[in-house]
Design a protein around this nucleic acid. Structure first.
Length: 121
DNA sequence: CACCTGACAGAAG
DNA sequence: TCTTCTGCCAGGT
């Protein structure tokens, strides 16, 4: 094995590890039921990536325009819509369409809509 | 390596 | 309750 091929192998396995992490994040978001919401941090933790909330946000920010992923069910801490512009309107529209209520503050009512995977269940 | 940026989160004021 | 500051992590330049 040449030095270059080892370097390539190392980079490739690192990339695969990242891909696996991404898949876990996507799978977690896919698992959020209709009418429920989760925070970036919660998604990261569920995916086994505690402390990497920003990574989740980064991933969603790069999502293709017509992705089937229910990205709108992911919110900032405390139920805050964490995007701006048209994306924010689209997120609120989609959430309302599935029965998610907003408080006067503009935040989602987490007491009613927070996703609680496996909890009490 | 230094420095910046961001779909975050929590603490402070 | 809202704004600002800090800590954080991954990527980009």
């Amino acid at each position: 094995m040449t030095r270059d091929s080892r370097t390539h192998a190392r980079r490739t396995s690192a990339r695969n590890a990242v891909d696996v992490a991404h898949q876990r994040i996507f799978a977690t978001i896919d698992a959020i039921p209709r009418g429920r919401v989760a925070s970036y941090g919660q998604v990261a933790a569920e995916a086994g990536l505690a402390g990497r909330a920003r990574w989740v946000g980064r991933l969603l920010s790069r999502l293709p325009a017509h992705s089937a992923l229910p990205w709108h069910r992911v919110l900032g801490a405390g139920g805050r819509v964490s995007v701006g512009g048209s994306a924010a309107r689209e997120q609120r529209r989609r959430l309302r369409a599935e029965g998610v209520g907003f408080r006067p503050s503009g935040r989602v009512d987490l007491a009613r809509h927070a996703w609680r995977p496996e909890s009490a269940g």
